[in-house]
Simulated assay, not measured.
Amino acid sequence: MLHTSGGPPPDPRRVVVGPLDLAARVDEALAVQALAFGLTDDEIGVRRHIVLRHMATPGARSLGATTEEDRLVGFVYGMPNDRTQWWSTVVHPYLRQEGLDNWLSDSFVITELHVHPAFQNRRVGRALITTLTDSADEPRSLLSALDTDSPARALYRSLGYRDLARRVQFPSASHPYAVMGAPLPLLR
C-alpha cells in the first residue's frame, strides 16, 4: 500500500527508475496521474486513448518509477516533436508570436511527467525526466505545464527549462499553460 499520511515518508532509495511498457501499464500510470494532477474518471478515459496512440508513435519512449514491490509511483513519456501533431499546432502560434517557433523543430517533447503525491519532493520526477532526455537525439526539449508558480515549474526551471510562451490556452483546458524549453542535456 502507498504511503498516505502519518508515519515516515516513503524511502526514495527504494524507488527504481527504469524502462516502462506504458501501453501495458497505462491504467496504473493514469491512476498516478489522476492523483498527482486531479483527473476525473472521464478525463482518465480520454487520456487512456491518447497515451496508447502516443506510444505507437515512432521514437516515443517511457520510463517508470517503481517500488521494490513493482508498484508504479511515477512515470514520464515523450517523443521527438512532430509539427503536424495536435500539441505543436496549438502551441505554434504562441511560439511564433514570441519569435521562438524554431523550437518546434529538432526537439524532444516531454508529453507527461507525474509522480504519486506520496513520492513527490524526493527527486523521483527529476530522475525520470533527466534519464528520459539523456537518451534523446534532439538538442533540446519542450514541455507544457500549468502557467502557475508550482513545484513542477520550479523543477523544470532548475533543470534549465525557461518560459518560451505563457498563457497558452489548450482547447478544453480551463487554465492557461506555459510552454517551456531547455537545451539538452538538462542541468544537474
Rank of each mutant, 00 (worst) to 15 (best):
E28G: 07
V16N: 12
P12I: 04
P19I: 10
L39S: 05
P8N: 11
D42C: 09
A24S: 12
R47Q: 15
R53Q: 14
Q33R: 12
L30A: 06
M55A: 07
L35Y: 04
E43F: 10
L35A: 14
V15K: 07
V51C: 02
R53P: 05
A36N: 01
G45K: 04
V15A: 10
V15N: 00
R53T: 14
V16D: 13
V17N: 04
V15E: 03
D21V: 03
V16C: 13
D11Q: 08
R48C: 03
L52W: 01
E28Y: 09
T40E: 09
V16Y: 12
V16I: 14
P9D: 07
R13T: 13
L20I: 04
A36F: 01
D27E: 15
V46W: 14
G18R: 08
R53F: 10
G18D: 09
V51Q: 00
E28K: 03
P19D: 14
V51R: 03
V17P: 02
I44Q: 07
H49P: 00
R14G: 13
R47D: 14
R14Y: 08
P8S: 13
V51S: 06
A24I: 10
V17S: 04
V17I: 12
A23N: 11
L52D: 08
D21Q: 05
P19V: 11
Q33E: 15
